[in-house]
Structures are given as C-alpha cells and as structure tokens.
Design a binder for these strands. Sequence first.
DNA 1: CGTCGGGTTGAGTCCATTCAACTTCGGTGG
DNA 2: CCACCGAAGTTGAATGGACTCAACCCGACG
Lengths: 239, 239
Amino acid sequence: MLEPLYLNLGQHDALSEEEKGLLAGAMTIELDFATGQDIVSEGSRPGYSTLIIEGLAARYKVLEDGGRQFTSLQVPGDFVDLHAFLLKTMDHGIIALSPCRVVAADHSRLRAITEQAPHLTRLLWLDTLVDGAIHREWIVAMGRRSKTSHLAHLVCELFVRLQVVKQTNGMSFRLPLSQAELADVLGLSIVHMNRVIGALRRLGVIGWSNYIVTILDWQQLVEIAEFDPTYLSMNREPR
Amino acid sequence: MLEPLYLNLGQHDALSEEEKGLLAGAMTIELDFATGQDIVSEGSRPGYSTLIIEGLAARYKVLEDGGRQFTSLQVPGDFVDLHAFLLKTMDHGIIALSPCRVVAADHSRLRAITEQAPHLTRLLWLDTLVDGAIHREWIVAMGRRSKTSHLAHLVCELFVRLQVVKQTNGMSFRLPLSQAELADVLGLSIVHMNRVIGALRRLGVIGWSNYIVTILDWQQLVEIAEFDPTYLSMNREPR
DNA sequence: CGTCGGGTTGAGTCCATTCAACTTCGGTGG
DNA sequence: CCACCGAAGTTGAATGGACTCAACCCGACG
C-alpha cells in the first residue's frame, strides 16, 4: 500500500524497516477523491497530511479574474500537503486531476516522528525540500525558457519522477491532463498551449494522445529542455 | 549578531533562550562577500549552511543562452542554503547583490540539532517551507499575473519580509537591485522592466530612485498585486 | 441523431522583445 | 578643474510571440 512512499523517500537514502513501520503506523486515514474534487482547500487548516497512492493531483491558486495557476503536479508517493504540518494554514488548494486514492497521517503522529525519529524526520524534511527545488526549476522555466523548452522540461521531469515510483511504461506514461489544464501549468492560453504541443509533436520528439505521453527521442527532448535532473536529488546518500 | 535570525524564526513561534543558544553555538563561521560574488556556487557541495546578517542575496540559475533567472531574494535573517544540509548538491548558485555579511553553521551542528532539539528542528524545517510558499507565489505571479501586478506583488512581499527583520524605514526600504537584475527576477527584458516600473510610478503608488523604494499608496498597491500575506505564515502559534 | 467537451486552426490585436539611440550621473585621470 | 568614460536608466520604432475571438472537427455518450 505505502510502496510508492517507500520508493519516493527511499530514492534519497535507505529507509529502515523500523522507519517503514513508523510511517505505516502514522498513515491511518484512507480516502478516495473523484476527478475535479478538492483534496485540500485554500484557507483550510487540515489536521492531517495527505499522501497520494494512486492518481494525479495539483496545487493551485485562483486569481480574482478567474485565472488559475498550478504550482505543482503531485504523483503517487508524493505528500501533497506535508507542509501544512508546520505552515498550519493552506495558502493554496489541492485538486484531484484524476480519481485519487490517498492515505493521510494525523499531524500529532507526524509530530511524534519529529520527537523520536530524527533520521526519518530528515527524510520527510528532504521530501519538502525537493518540492522546493522543483518549484525553483519551474520558476526558471517560466521566466527564461521558451515555451517549447518549458513543455519539454516538464515532460522530462514527469517522466523521471514517475519512473521512480514505477508509473511509467517503457518510454510512455499516462498524463490525465486536458490541454486547458496543461495551460494552467505553463501559464499559457489554451490556444497557444495547443500550438506548443503541436510544435514538439511535429519535431517528432514526443507523441501525445489519449492522455498518454510517449517520448520518441529522449536525447533531443533533453536538449530542447536543457534538462539536468540534479535538482531532484535522486542519488542515495546519508542524509 | 543573530538578531535577524531570531526575528525571522521567532515570527512563527516563540524561540526559547536555550534554542537561541543552540543556534548561536552552531553559527561559528563568519564571512563577508562583495557585490557580485558567489556566496555558494551551483554544483558545489557545501559543508555548512549560510545565513544573511546584512545585505541582499539571490538564488539563481543560468541557461545555455546566457539568460539568468533569480528564483528567490534573500534578506537579513534568511538561511540562503539551509536546504543544502539535506539536498547535499547545490542545484543553483547564490550571489551577493550587495555587500553581504553572513554567518554559517557546519552541517554536523545542524545534524546535532535534528537529533536533540525537535522543536528547533521544526522551526528550521518551517523556514524552508516558507521558502517554498514564496516560490509558489512567484510561480503564480509569473504565470497568471500581469507584469505590473507581478512587480507590485514583489514590492509588497519584500516590504513585509523586511519589516519583520526591521529593515524598513517608514514606508521605504532599500532595494539595491539594478533594473537589469530586477528583470532577471520577473523574467522580463530590461527595456520592458523599465516600462513596468514607470507604469507603477506614474500611477503614484510607488517611488523608486537611488535604490530606495517608497510605497506611496499601500492600499492601491495591495489591490494591484492582489497581495495576501497568508503564505508568509507570519502568525505566532505552536509549531 | 444531437450535444458536449476536448482539440485544432485561422485571423487580427496587443504585449513584450530586440535594436538602437540618447541621457544622466558619478568616477577618474589628464 | 574639467573632459571623458562607463554604468544605469529612459525612450522610440520595428519585429515577433502570445492572446483573444471565432469557427470547425471529432469522438463519446445519451
């Protein structure tokens, strides 16, 4: 059940059986969300933190003019609101972009982990730090990359992240996002989003249909994206 | 000496004298950097984490075409690379934008804090979480705000953050950033950056000269920015 | 068979960029 | 002392990228 979490945390440093047990003991709540439902809503003060077991979710904010911006995409094994454990008040919402199966840990249990299990605490902290590193990479992409490069970078990132939690299939993965939703990731209009996808398709580096993305030329995709996975900290070392 | 750090961490929850002592004991290294110098460089594996006492610094990445994007601005009291304690390898550089006085804590000492001082550990973790919240707000600004609103939002954020560490003077604060550097914050060209600043000036909401920003109409600035400081977690509560 | 939610394409407008020139100001050396 | 220089800021004009508006296609589904 918690396999995706173990894969996610375990990519950075070895997880002991004891630590796995602590996590399993903490994740007591089990929930399902339908596509489009809020897993956590902006302004709320959740008493537990939620982990995705299956499905795709996203953090988002909505502006007064109705514009929406996703600030992250969350895949199986990701703690979507681990930060709420200490930030307390949600400054953004989290929406299920596909049917999501999640488990959650009461904050009192997380607190107990920080009191008794320093190494596991550091791994949870690290998980939020990788989150931050991904945010920084998105800022760079939005500010200084061409739109084509930005999209290519996103595809690279998702492929690598999904591979860690065994959610890829060869060079393909499922990305249940409409082009309108993707536009809210990249900060583009729907029409232009469509043209950017078309550009990458015409170059023959990716295929994209029925919510399945296929990487046809990884080498070229990485070049277009200037993708360097360092920021994902995917090497195992003592933390 | 560590006053800015105490003010910064202390805004979220009370810091005990003992915890202040632990921090003071950890921050053993003292350094100065000149404008333009790298405080930490991309790809390095620093053995200590750096805190700004005085000056302005920024995290940045450079792309192959020479384009630069700042991913955060760091003010006194900010740990510029606390994340390196667990991420190990720097995926970005940190540059001094003005003369900077910094102190640093060896990672072995931070590790000791995580083993012995759970509450202080949570406060340090929280500091990196606020970092992440700021990143998310920047992503929203880059993706879905007008350029004018983006700049207004940045001014609001900096004013509030600087106020916490007593670096404002009435409704003014010093921002030692050239327009070219500011352009690398917002992801704009220099020329357009100049026009966006001009627009806010002409509206009479801010003054900007000699690296001093003055807020002339806070109410209107907040409206243009749609600024809501929730994401900065500036309320004291048990963490 | 009609409708609806995606996806795709064309055309015109607007925003942001580039290229280029010119100003202002502080510093520096003849 | 002042002439010169370079860094930063400002402005105009032309180009190109991204947006809006609008139409049309298509497959799923009732």
